[in-house]
């Protein structure tokens, strides 16, 4: 009963912050709403007994992605105090959002969910699902894992190359 109530509270908070993120005329406020929205998703993860994912959600999405976003916003010229409604590309935005939402809804409806009762969620919290996740990553999912590693490494090296080219021109 409590869990259902909490779920609806968090779900309402997520939807509210997500909508406010899009509607807010101030881009800095949007970023803050995005952080709150992602925190709500982390709360849902924690409620499902997946604390590890909840921790990663906060660490990576809020601690890295949103922080970098805010950082970029702070560095842009005279954003402070300005209220610019982003209404320029309304049709492509609607199309992209509508299409991806339809896809997600279809996927959710088509999937045969392996639902769990409340007790098994409690049991899941007791088990060390971090170990389980780690073992899965280097056994069943080793190929995607390595591909992602190479991708991230390429991005890292790319960033270094771009920055060092700029530094050379300045000197």
């Amino acid at each position: 009963m409590v869990e259902t109530l909490l779920f609806y509270v968090f779900a309402a908070a997520i939807v509210f912050t997500a909508v406010m993120m899009v509607l807010s005329p101030n881009i800095f406020h949007s970023a803050i709403y995005l952080a709150l929205c992602l925190f709500g998703v982390a709360a849902i993860f924690a409620m499902l007994g997946s604390f590890f994912l909840a921790g990663l959600q906060v660490l990576i999405y809020i601690g890295a992605v949103v922080v970098l976003t805010i950082f970029v916003i702070s560095l842009t010229r005279q954003v402070s105090g300005e209220s610019d409604a982003q209404m320029g590309n309304i049709l492509p935005a609607f199309l992209t959002a509508g299409l991806s939402t339809t896809l997600i809804i279809l996927a959710v409806l088509k999937t045969d969910w392996n639902t769990m009762a409340g007790e098994s969620v409690a049991a899941l919290e007791k088990t060390n699902n971090v170990t389980l996740l780690g073992n899965q990553l280097i056994s069943s999912f080793v190929l995607p894992f390595e591909v992602i590693s190479v991708l991230l490494l390429a991005a890292l090296i790319g960033a270094v190359v771009i920055v060092s080219k700029d530094a050379g021109e300045n000197k």
């Binding site: 921790g55 906060v58 660490l59 809020i62 805010i70």
Partner: peptide, 10 residues
């Protein structure tokens, strides 16, 4: 701990 302390940057 790491996740939560990262929040104070915001």
């Amino acid at each position: 701990v790491m996740a939560i302390t990262g929040l104070s940057v915001i």
